[in-house]
Design a protein around this nucleic acid. Structure first.
Length: 117
RNA sequence: CCAGAGGAUCGGGCGACCGCGGCCCCCGCGUGAGUGGGGGGCGAGGAAAGUCCGGGCUCCAUGGAACGACGGUGCCGGGUAACGCCCGGCGGGGGCGACCCCAGGGACAGUGCCACAGAGAGCAGACGGCGACGGCUUCGGCCCCGCCAUGGUGAAAGGGUGCGGUAAGAGCGCACCGCGCGACCGGUAACGGAAGCGGCAUGGUAAACCCCACCGGGAGCAAGAUCGAAUAGGGGUGGCACGGGGCUUACGUCCCAGGGCGCGUUCCCGCCCGCUACCCGGGUUGAUUGCUGCAGGCGGCGCGCAAGCGUCGUCGUAGAGGAAUGGUCGCCCAUUUCCGCGAUAAAGCGGAAAGGACAGAACCCGGCUUACAGAUCCUCUGGCCUU
RNA sequence: GGAGAGGUGGCAGAGUGGUCGAAUGUACCGCACUCGAAAUGCGGCGUGCCCUCACGGGUACCGUGGGUUCGAAUCCCACCCUCUCCG
């Protein structure tokens, strides 16, 4: 059984090919992060989520904090407004660590609406 | 009160809700491995860092001896499992002082190097120069002999200053300073003191080679173990192939050998050797394990100047694996800014906002080094004022 | 997590105790050759600070900071950065 990240049945991506596939999906760049979404179209309704924080963002401390904050975002937002049957990938950007959490939350909602259009 | 020195400690606190990691308990389903739900308490550091040293642990290697090679350490004594660490002492340097800093063995075991400049750079003399007697002279000097005070240098030039002395000079003589040797005394030792003796001789560099003393097998938890597709390698059996020489018709037997491995050399010693067929077996991704309790913290007592040691009591719960600590809110504490009242300056009072250093365990310990907002405590030094 | 290697002009890359701000190539600038260009030849060419009207000169810098030495790009120590290898 894959890890669920405690967010109501959302599965975490670990495979490189899943990330590459998501890269070909829809993109929604925001000041603190970039959201990638790819509908799988395989009849399965579970949402999946992946996180990418590269070395450009900072050292291990900064990168881990970035991932924790992204997970917190996903837990609050995705169960309600996420896209069923799709893979989501959040890519951390420079400044995402300092950015106010409420701002990030509204921006994630904005990004999801943008992707749905 | 100001300036400074040494040492120790902490490194935001309390609470609520939603989450994460693993542990324990309970309930449901399942023969079972498991799985769904609920509850409980636990969950990063002083540096977790750099990976610079020392160990534990694991695998590999390790037959014996001598010499050697390579790497490291380097005042003395002590502490320690050990150390390149720590403590105490000695010597040298810096500071008015509290204190701080030092790779701090050996340069009469040997070798090398000391650029440029300079007459000369390591052993003393040559060159320039100074000088009485004697000899020669074309009257300018030259030869013989004596001498090192004098030489625009240089990081460094053969004790320094002064007086005497001399043909010129020279520790040649003397005084003071410096230097060397040093009976003897103190100290476990490093070393310190020192009567007396010596006219003074041994430049620097060992973070150049080196000498001396002491230490050191290699790799690292991505070690290693267990379960486990495929390939290669490995093992067993069969077949083929299988150095030279002596004796023998032959079978056989004896002698001599080649290459590789065991850090180098020598001697003894041990192991391995080409092709092919079949069989055994094989361990990548992954999973499980190694995986956290101890050279442990705190307190009392004893020993020790101290580092530390002994003993008694007491306390203990991170164990992930693309890697768990986050998000939101309230109150308080440092800190900063702004506004109002203090007289327009200061202390102070009230209010609002911002806001938390360096940094995240990855097998575990002992050190070192480096990063670090701010806060607290102890001891000491110098200066100023008051009594 | 562990094990190693390396930092020198704009770029590449020698130099490993003195005469070294530092060879050489490349890039750039000027001149020559050409109708013009390329190629070729010759010459020049780092940065900061200070002095100078200027020409020119002095000084520091070989990743950073200390140390040894008379003298350091070179030897030693600490730190920073970059790269490689191990499942």
């Amino acid at each position: 059984m894959p890890a669920t990240d405690g967010a109501g049945g959302i599965v975490v991506l670990t495979r490189r090919r899943d990330f590459l596939a998501a890269n070909a999906g829809r993109r929604a760049p925001m000041p603190g992060f970039v959201l990638l979404v790819r509908p799988r179209d395989d009849g399965d309704a579970t949402m999946r989520i992946g996180y990418t924080v590269t070395k450009k963002i900072g050292n291990a401390v900064v990168r881990n904090r970035m991932k924790r904050r992204l997970r917190a975002l996903v837990r609050e937002v995705l169960p309600d407004t996420g896209i069923a049957g799709a893979d989501h990938v959040l890519i951390g950007r420079a400044g995402g660590v300092e950015r106010d959490f409420a701002t990030l939350r509204s921006e994630l909602g904005k990004a999801l609406r943008k992707v749905l259009r």
